[in-house]
Amino acid sequence: MKTRYSFGGDEHIFVECDEEMSLQAFFKGLSITNGVRDSRIKGVTEICPANASFQIKFNPDEIAPDDLLAELKRIEETASKSVASLKTRIIEIPVLYNDPWTHETLMRFRERHQDPSSTDIEYAARINNLGTVDNFIKAHSGAPWFVSMVGFVAGLPFLYQMAERAKQIEVPKYLRPRTDTPKLTVGHGGCFGCIYSVRGAGGYQMFGVTPMPIYDPTQTISYLKDFMVLFRPGDIVKWKPIDREEYDQTVAAVEAGKFQPRIRDVSFALDEFEKDIDGYNRKLQEALYGH
């Protein structure tokens, strides 16, 4: 894993922790960005962690680009000694797989897909050797997922499946991006899952929708009153497959201000997770559903 620094014009430093995705690369970025935040470097205006990289926006009138670069490299050296762990939350997200809205949308954009004769979820099940859609849903909703980046559009989480690499679901993005994606679509591209926070363009395969808003610029939804964006990097997500009846009930409960998402505080330690992935995930689930 070799850290690569590059200037993004005169206002950004872009730092790639690793070319390929891994939780090690994510945590390396997280510890450096935490170090940058704690250092309160004059002229740093935005700190944006990403999956296996991060970006610092700065004002070159306040700090010379080369000085900031040197400072980041110094922080990287200290950060590399830190332990990859964090105090975070596990959040249950209900999903209606194979829903009518993403189905209508994916049919409209079939000619942009690798396999126009099947649906996105059938295609993903097949190329991941899972046989049936039911098996795919089991695999998708079995292990929890790690929020390794928030962005693209407001509040959209990128989700990294907490499973050994051989078991991780991988799908290509659409051949050409769609111009439309339903709001709250559960999508997947490369090794990353996502939830589309708003309606708009997108290239990820579409598997279902959640009835649970994750971004609310009006800040009227009960659990988004304090801040309009639900997710932050490091959050852990557990999908819960639901049927149409529960979907409709949840939508109504959200509208009535009565829906409370299931969220529990947990801590996460990368070395323990890697020692026993299945065991660790079971403990996370117990924290989510236990009392």
Partner: peptide, 14 residues
């Protein structure tokens, strides 16, 4: 790993 197969793909970044 994680980038996608197109030569213009990278692991999603800022």
């Amino acid at each position: 790993f994680g980038a996608g197969s197109d030569p213009s793909n990278i692991v999603d970044a800022c």
